[in-house]
Simulated assay, not measured.
Amino acid sequence: MADPRPVRIGVAGLTSDHVWSLVGALRALPAVEVVAVAEPIEALRRRAVEAVPGVGEHQDPEAMMAAERLDAILVCAENAAKPSIAVAALERGIAVYQDKPLAATGEQAAVIADAVGRTGGLLMCAFHTAFDPLFDEVGQLVRDGLIGTVQFARGLAGHAGLKATGVSDDFTAWLTDRSRGGGGSFVDQAGYLLTTLVTYLGPVGRISGFATTVNPEIPADIEDNTAAIVQHEGGALAAIDTRWGQVGPTPLRYSFHGTTGTLSVFYDRYELVTTSARGPEGWEPTAAPPGLTGWRAVVTPRTSYDAEAAHFVAALRDGAPLRAAVTAPTALHVQQVIDAYYESVTTGRAVTVPA
């Protein structure tokens, strides 16, 4: 029988703009209570009190954990602060639901992953796109051999810029500070792409990276436009790019190029060109070059904070397994790939990712 007691959750850090949607998703779940917040910025604590009447207020996460009876914490602090918060929680037997990425650097991420292994505690690093059903659908198509053996893949991510998309000043302050965030658009956005590609194609072996800073409002020591070539340990190559400051949307999300076809994943549809005479069940035929067939399926992106919050609570309350994409080992590997990218940008050489 499921434990009837409410799950009591504290929030450590309020400077990530994701926090407000995540708190709302948690509070919408049955028998879940957000009981306390810890944040040194008073204006953010005031906003939390307005959003969650009666919530306990603390300036320091460890003080909150000492004063409150908590089953879990939601960590939405700056990336460099995550290791101390997550480790303190795990050592107290408190589960951790963490905004992405795992930390600011691979070294910091390893500290968290080590604490998960040492304590046996629960930690979920929420790469939000992993909870879009398209994540599973596309992965299954690739694993089922729809396009044969994948030889090359591509992932793209970008938005109009921090100011243009309404990112708060408190969030921007650490997103654009290398010591607090870990870098620029690559550490901010590439984790989504890397988590997807690692899930579909396996671990990354090497990466070669390039970076530019175009917007004069972005500090020169971080990047707002990136490109990287990735070689997976299984042999497949991939290209990924990220942008802060893109005019218009990025309609193409991913493409996968295999020995028998190409699958393109757009925001609103899948498109397939294949050597096969038949397409997937329910897909509509489209034009294709001679000797090939073309197929199309309309889809709706369904990324949901509600789904990830429910996934974490099910793992905490019922012992349900976390999906691999949001576990500490996957998040650590992704962070190590990101570290290798930055090393490649600095050295001008391809860099091997630690095994």
Rank of each mutant, 00 (worst) to 15 (best):
G234D: 06
F186C: 04
D221G: 14
A236D: 05
S208N: 08
F152R: 13
V198L: 00
V230R: 04
T199Y: 14
G155L: 03
A238I: 11
G202V: 05
G184P: 12
T195G: 00
N225H: 14
K163A: 15
V198K: 00
A227Q: 09
L156P: 08
T196Q: 12
L175K: 08
G191L: 11
E223P: 02
V204D: 01
G191T: 12
D170F: 05
F210Y: 13
G148M: 06
V142D: 09
N225D: 06
V187R: 01
T195F: 01
S185M: 14
T212C: 02
V198M: 04
T226I: 13
I222Q: 05
P216M: 08
A227L: 14
T196Y: 14
A220R: 14
W174K: 00
S168W: 06
F171G: 06
V167K: 12
S179D: 15
T212F: 04
E223T: 01
G183R: 02
V204M: 03
Q189A: 10
L175G: 03
G202H: 12
G158I: 04
S179I: 06
A157Q: 03
G183V: 06
E223C: 00
L146R: 02
H159Q: 15
G202S: 08
I229V: 10
A160V: 04
D144M: 05
A238N: 10
P216L: 01
A228M: 10
N215R: 15
R154I: 03
G158A: 10
R178T: 06
L175T: 01
P219T: 13
Q140S: 11
E223V: 00
V204G: 01
A153Q: 11
L237R: 11
A157H: 04
Y192N: 05
L197S: 06
R154Y: 08
F152M: 04
G182E: 05
L162K: 06
I229C: 10
V150A: 06
G202W: 11
G183F: 04
A228V: 05
D169I: 11
T226C: 11
V230K: 03
Q189V: 02
P203I: 11
G161Y: 09
L175R: 07
A227D: 09
Q231E: 12
L201V: 03
G202L: 13
G155V: 01
L194D: 01
L175H: 06
H232R: 03
S208M: 08
L197P: 08
T213G: 01
F152Q: 09
V167C: 14
A164G: 12
A153K: 09
L141W: 07
L146A: 01
D224P: 00
G234P: 02
G184L: 08
L201M: 06
G182H: 11
Y192R: 01
T149P: 11
D169L: 13
F186V: 13
R143M: 10
I229G: 06
T226G: 02
T149F: 00
Q140M: 05
P219C: 13
E217S: 11
I218L: 13
G182D: 07
V167E: 05
D169H: 08
F171E: 10
S168Y: 12
A211H: 05
A153F: 13
L237T: 14
G181F: 02
Q231M: 12
R206E: 11
G155N: 02
T199I: 10
T213Y: 00
G209L: 01
I229K: 03
G158M: 10
W174E: 02
Y192A: 10
S208C: 07
A157D: 04
